[in-house]
Design a protein around this nucleic acid. Structure first.
Lengths: 335, 335
DNA sequence: CTCTGGTATGGAACCGGTTCCGATTGTAGC
DNA sequence: GCTACAATCGGAACCGGTTCCATACCAGAG
């Protein structure tokens, strides 16, 4: 069925080794021989079989990406960055979407084998010690994105700072009652960014000599619908906030919806901030904390490929810049 | 580095062939031999090298997914379905995101080689004849999702019907001036669904004895921002529509935003319909045409794996059911 | 007891590349 | 003209599986 290197060798009247040398642009091939081989390759429309190459080279030219919730725009955006950078580097990307604990276990059990992939990128999932031990044992290069572990190279943004930026902006506008809507820090799948952002908010508010009462902190799953419920409850209590910091743009969209349904004007009656600066944020005119999502994927790949090729890993924790993007969902509180 | 089948054979005191027979659960292995081999496998923690297996079997256990615009929630949702079904079937998924014409050409040039993948799923991209010819030559199983081609198996929904459903609903509510906002039918990347949906809208409106003037048809790229611009222009003209059918939920969100900015009340002053029923639609209370996105991925995989295993393909064009989901963005026009 | 037929199994050949080793050829130096 | 060495290249060995073939063994039939 396929044309093999032997066919090329036969047609060019050379040995298989020579064809391989031409293919891999090795030195010590006579120019005349080289061109005969190239002609034969062209004549037969030969393309080397990648599987055979992999077996021989003991390299798969493939990296795996593990991420939870392919549903989240921010995760997808990071994945886009990973994909773009991998294609540039000539690697294939195989994707594992883990939405359940069972799936997570299965993936971490089966995947990390040197024979399957050359490296691993893990997005928004912090590996357990046992998972890590398995990876370490086979000495598989790994880079984390938006996840934490003392000993693993990672690309992250400073979520605490992000929380501070959002709340600092609101405090500067004059807000004194600031609420927070964030994700459940799901134990088995372990997200921490929402929690860290809340920490940042807390710190900033404390630094301003204020506190954030428990009634103004709402935690729920990531959907805008759930966020709308939480915001509605928060806004209809006796002492509602004048501003809400949300742990994602998606949740901010939910909060906007709640305000809207309650007949409140944003930013007149309520200020709202998001996080990520996905397309939706621009569209909704959301003030948000921008983090370089696509770029985080690109950087993770660059570092991973570096590790695969033996470059020293450099600093383990690479922190990406974040910034506040002010749009029209925030304003000074009315009175 | 890794434990090989020879190590197992040596430890169990058998030949490599016998180990392979045990691994593949072939008949004709003495139960005593089998258990000796299984013990050795367990003792060495042996896992067969998939690359070697692939080379030997001439099967990659991998399928490729080509899709444009990993940015669109609807595409991502289909991809989720593909991923879930492939994992169930024991296949790896490699993803190619094509956002430019160059990339499309590169992917279609390099990818379809029997040695790389066992099958191909193409989402929202209708292959050209030349691309197809290459695929046909190597006899690679392909299934399209949300894309069209006379001779290829595909999983689609009836977009014309979808357009009709949305406009029929609006007509039934009493609307007479109905606008449409859709995608550019990008020549090189060839999306057709938006165009087909417009066709459906046209037919239904014509059937009601009305027409849809050119001033009420707006075409632009897929972003909500662009859609907001188009809707704003449409709504501020001399004879604005009382309802707008949008080719996607994303664009409908843009239209809602425009209405909002113009101080118009939805559904009081303007009805809006979307398409896809992504999470956003639920959140915005958007009346929309629901199509089974996740399920389309699942079905495509089921059919592709069937083809790979030699099941007859059955009907080429599998049409998935769609339905109108009525929420609060549509109502009778205010006189 | 021999013949037959089926089962179990070792091992060679194969999948399609890469790489290493050794042989051949060519050229420079003396 | 002979030696030394480098450049070139063919082909074997290897990567780690699967499968086919030949053989050994065993049981039952004649």
């Amino acid at each position: 069925m396929g044309v093999t290197i032997s066919d090329v060798a036969r047609l060019a009247g050379v040995g298989r080794g020579t064809v391989s040398r031409v293919l891999n642009e090795r030195a010590n091939v006579d120019p005349r021989t080289r061109s005969r081989v190239l002609e034969a390759i062209a004549a037969l429309d030969f393309v080397p079989n990648p599987t055979a190459r992999r077996l021989s080279l003991r390299r798969t030219q493939t990296i795996a990406v593990i991420l939870p919730f392919l549903t989240r725009p921010s995760a997808v955006e990071r994945l886009r960055g990973v994909e773009a950078a991998l294609v540039r580097g000539g690697y294939d990307m195989i994707v594992f979407n883990v939405e359940t604990v069972e799936r997570r276990e299965a993936v971490f059990r089966d995947l990390p084998r040197r024979e399957r992939v050359d490296g691993l990128i893990i997005i928004s999932l912090s590996p357990h010690e046992t998972e890590l031990e398995r990876i370490g044992r086979i000495d598989l290069p790994v880079v984390l994105i938006d996840a934490h572990h003392r000993t693993l190279p990672r690309v992250v943004a400073d979520d605490v700072l992000g929380g501070r930026l959002a709340s600092r902006h609101l405090l500067a506008l004059g807000h004194r009652r600031i609420g927070f809507i964030g994700d459940i820090p799901r134990i088995p799948l372990a997200f921490t960014s929402s929690r860290l952002r809340l920490t940042g908010v807390r710190r900033e508010i404390t630094a301003a000599g204020l506190t954030i009462p428990a009634s103004l902190v709402a935690i729920g799953d990531h959907s805008p619908r759930r966020s709308t419920e939480l915001a509605t409850r928060m806004l209809t209590q006796r002492l509602p906030p004048t501003a809400i910091v949300c742990a994602s743009d998606t949740q901010a969209a939910g909060a906007l919806e709640a305000a809207n349904a309650l007949g409140m004007n944003v930013p007149g009656d309520l200020s709202v901030t998001g996080y990520d600066d996905i397309e939706l944020a621009d569209h909704l005119g959301l003030t948000t904390v921008r983090q370089p999502l696509f770029e985080s994927g690109v950087r993770a790949v660059e570092r991973l490929l570096g590790m695969i090729h033996g470059t020293p890993p450099g600093v383990l924790r690479e922190v990406q810049p974040i910034s506040l993007v002010v749009r029209r969902s925030t304003a000074p509180p009315s009175v």
